[in-house]
Simulated scan of single mutants.
Amino acid sequence: MNFPERFSNLPAYAFPRLRALLDHHAPGGDVVHMTIGEPKHAFPAWVTDLISENTGGFNSYPPNEGTPELRQAFCEWVARRYDVTLDPETNVLPLNGSREGLYNVAMALCPESKNGQRPVVLMPNPFYQVYMLAAISVGAEPVFVSATEASGHLPDYTSLPKEVLDRTVACYICSPANPQGAVADHAYWSDLIALAEQHDFQIFADECYSEIYRDAPPVGVLQVARDAGADPERVVAFHSLSKRSNLPGLRSGFVVAGPQSTARMRQLRMYTGAPLPLPLQAAAAAVWADGAHVDDNRAQYREKYDMADRILGNVPGYKGPEAGFFLWLPVEDGEAAALSLWQATGVRVLPGAYLSQNDASGVNPGKGYIRVALVAPKPDVERGLTAIRDHLYGTQ
């Protein structure tokens, strides 16, 4: 039996790797899960009522391109949030969770070569693992650009050599960033758009954490692209209800793009997509239209930000996130810290190296960090953060 070689050298996925590290050791206390970014706040109670009211839709195949009502809800949300006007027929496409789109966008839009050479797809390092898989799947070279404290925890794509940028067909960028919580400001987006225009590549903007923030709402790439008068096909933006509305199981995301890009993604999705069932599309349209529950969700995360600042504020190198729901905490060695913490306290965190690749010099930019998710109930978060402080830092 012959199997493809393109996936043969993939690193172990983060969570099986974590289980291999921790699970043959007994926890040192009651378990507190602070690894996976799975929101645990309550979602709106009326969501289940809407699904029940629309159960007749389970008797029909759902449209791949989404119902008109759902696409309109996407556009109205973008108009409220970013003051950007979209056409529901040509600018938006529903996704079965944003990960589907973050993978398939490369399939639909990345060319087989550029300037007669193998194409490059840029991505931050650390990164969401689907970015790498998408690049590999289309035969592109994934180029990992370290997002460290020195670069504001965002990748500096402008620093890359011209020969790399001239082969680049797309770059992934996550803002607010997972795992660091850094936010791309207007100047960052402007510089990136100008770079993409200069070297003719697309920006795949993963903005699924855009509604969880400490102070001001993060600026969106769509706003900046509009202000810059960029090519409408230059930017592809992804959004999701998973974090915004605590509905990861509903699998409602969407992508915004120029008409040509949207048409290509829609064509691919006709063959490969897994459309959201009609009762779930009806519920999703209502959830995208409602902002009250999002305000409440954000307030709960702000309480957790304040809790983290209070408990960890004296830890050397601690910096509270601007947005998102992860802490990116400096340690000597993330893997050793995660194992020691588990054995001593039962608190479960993720080594930063599991989200990163070695750079050109052989250094993994995530090695000296742990990622801590603030998704558990507040008493568990407080206990977990206190254990992290006391065990790893010994700082009161």
Score class of each variant (00 low, 15 high):
W328M: 13
V347P: 11
S52W: 02
R244C: 05
A150T: 10
H41F: 13
S210M: 11
T148I: 08
A292V: 09
A230I: 09
C75Y: 13
P232V: 05
G66E: 09
T345W: 08
F74H: 15
A284T: 08
Q260T: 01
L276W: 03
I388C: 09
C110G: 11
A387F: 11
R71Y: 12
A323T: 05
R266L: 00
H199Y: 15
A283F: 06
S113D: 14
A338R: 04
S190T: 15
Y188E: 05
A283M: 13
H25C: 08
A205Q: 04
G273Q: 03
L21E: 05
N246A: 15
V381T: 02
R99V: 02
E100N: 06
A228E: 10
I203A: 01
V331K: 08
D166Y: 04
G229P: 04
V381L: 08
V31I: 15
L165D: 08
S146Y: 01
L276G: 06
V145S: 01
F325N: 14
D49H: 13
E335Y: 00
A387R: 13
F326Q: 12
V138P: 04
E233H: 04
R167W: 09
P155M: 09
R17S: 09
M1F: 11
V349L: 08
G116A: 08
P63Y: 06
N364S: 10
G139R: 09
G97L: 07
T48V: 01
H186I: 09
T55H: 07
V219N: 00
M265Q: 02
V169H: 03
S8G: 15
P126C: 03
H293V: 06
V84N: 12
L18Q: 10
L109A: 04
G249Q: 15
G273E: 07
H391R: 12
R383C: 05
A387H: 12
